[in-house]
Design a binder for these strands. Structure first.
Lengths: 145, 145
DNA sequence: CTTAATCCCTATAGTGTCTAGAGGTTCAAG
DNA sequence: CTTGAACCTCTAGACACTATAGGGATTAAG
């Protein structure tokens, strides 16, 4: 009914050192140990790790996950905070898609020219170098693998 | 017509030490200096930096940006080289768009289904806690801030 | 022309999120 | 009871910044 860190890694797809790292930074609670100091996990620990992994996949940063976990831990409060976190993330994702789409168009244009044997006149910089940018925070800095 | 590093930082939203860092790693060419060794930038340098910033926001890593800039820097290089770089980047862009689109879908669904009541019924939390997900690779590792 | 405030310089060290390695210990299969 | 895979801690490295220290340059006011 309980299993080692390697088994947990296999079941969740999170690497062993990463699991230890999450424990170190307090995302995972220290699990019980065997006599020989090896970690033993149960279903609950596994669910928590799966939650973290899924959230990381969606691009939430560690602090956002910490917040989401604390909501999960006391489920009697309103979920508007969770909503807020998720919709902020959605906004980011949508903005990103829009920009990537215009970059895609430009790269396609350059490739099309190239195919015609013309020396591509590269406008990648102009594509993204619009000065109508907002100086918001850059994010997704640390989306994990 | 030319301006200091601080002014450039203000205009592009890239922090001063980051600009110096980009110069150090060769993404930005060393600009001319004043008598007193202070950097002076012009419009062209600014466009290049704005481009780098946007590309980082979109999640390109430094090496990818180096490749994109090299398209810009030597427009006379053989079409096949440019083609290779551009199409590799295009693949990356399209993969990124696909990934973000599915994130968007999932985030939208999470939010739509959340009646915004107690956390206990919160779809956002529930969706993340759902352990029936596949163990795909995490990506977007180097999305910029 | 002096002075003070503000900016800039280099160099080094620290951050977050992992990931990899060394060197040693524990566990489970046989 | 032996052996080999898996575990342990600790340290260091990768990436892309970010902050700090200690000092010099530039600019606006007086």
């Amino acid at each position: 009914m309980d299993f080692s860190i390697g088994e947990l890694a296999r079941r969740t797809g999170v690497k062993v050192p990463t699991i230890r790292y999450y424990e170190q930074i307090g995302l995972l609670l220290p699990p019980p140990r065997t006599e020989g100091q090896q970690r033993r996990y149960d279903k609950k620990g596994m669910a928590r790790l799966a939650f973290i992994r899924h959230a990381r996949e969606l691009g939430f940063d560690i602090e956002a996950i910490r917040a989401l976990l604390s909501l999960q831990d006391n489920p009697n409060q309103s979920c508007s905070v969770a909503d807020q976190i998720a919709s902020a993330r959605l906004d980011e994702v949508e903005a990103r898609i829009a920009r990537l789409s215009s970059l895609r168009t430009e790269l396609q244009r350059m490739l099309a020219e190239c195919a015609c044997g013309r020396v591509a006149e590269c406008r990648v910089i102009e594509t993204l170098a619009d000065n109508s940018h907002q100086h918001g925070q850059l994010d997704e800095k640390h989306a994990g693998s």
